[in-house]
């Protein structure tokens, strides 16, 4: 019995390590992770197999994130696509003591004030998941398809600025990727250069 337990422990550890050592790559299986959200629940990417998942790197104090939340653009996207049974995970990789690293209470207060419509706000306080996905900026957006393959990585849209007025003429890459994928079409831009503040690792 003891032996079996030991074997199981080693087996599990190996799996954990092999998973956390993985790096995300386009058109490859998106590496799994488990994080706690601001409400205290834990979520794993693998929980959502069979559904499209959007990963949004977030930092409420970054002017580029403010642009999209103050204009209501991000909430509108979240509402539209969660309405189509898509899972939306906002991930904050600001490590302890850095900008954007808030207490769960503060997060919930701000999210409510913004009227955010994400599925969950995940706290990646040691930056591991961010580095696994090579998240560079806030926002930095990813789309995972129902098979668990990473199909989009990059900017939210094609107008790199902090000016809200740019949103209406911008081409939204995330919406384009989701619409194309859900219609069974090829995603034209799978990788774009993200823009924003640096992730505060």
């Amino acid at each position: 019995m003891k032996k079996t337990m030991l074997f199981l422990a080693v087996f599990l550890l190996t799996i954990t390590f092999s998973v956390s050592g993985q790096k995300a790559a386009i058109d490859k299986a998106a590496p799994d992770f488990t994080l706690t959200d601001s409400k205290g629940e834990t979520h794993s990417l693998s929980d959502f197999k069979g559904k499209y998942v959007v990963l949004e790197w977030i930092n409420y104090d970054c002017p580029f994130v403010e642009k999209h939340y103050d204009a209501g653009n991000m909430q509108k996207l979240q509402e539209t696509y969660t309405g189509k049974d898509i899972v939306w995970l906002s991930i904050c990789s600001s490590v302890d003591g850095k900008q954007g690293n808030f207490t769960p209470e503060e997060i919930n207060k701000r999210s409510e004030a913004h009227g955010a419509k994400f599925t969950a706000y995940l706290m990646d306080t040691d930056g591991k998941v961010g580095k696994m996905y090579a998240a560079k900026t806030t926002p930095h957006m990813y789309v995972v398809n129902p098979e668990g393959t990473l199909v989009y990585a990059g900017a939210i849209d094609d107008k790199a600025s902090t000016d809200k007025a740019d949103i209406k003429d911008a081409k939204n890459y995330v919406a384009a990727a989701l619409d194309a994928a859900m219609a069974g079409k090829e995603i034209k831009e799978k990788v774009t250069k993200p823009y924003g503040c640096s992730v505060k690792y």
């Binding site: 104090d61 970054c62 002017p63 580029f64 850095k98 900008q99 902090t162 000016d163 503040c197 640096s198 505060k200």
Partner: peptide, 10 residues
């Protein structure tokens, strides 16, 4: 411009 130290300000 955008001016940054670690945090950024447009």
């Amino acid at each position: 411009w955008l001016v940054c130290k670690i945090e950024c300000l447009p």
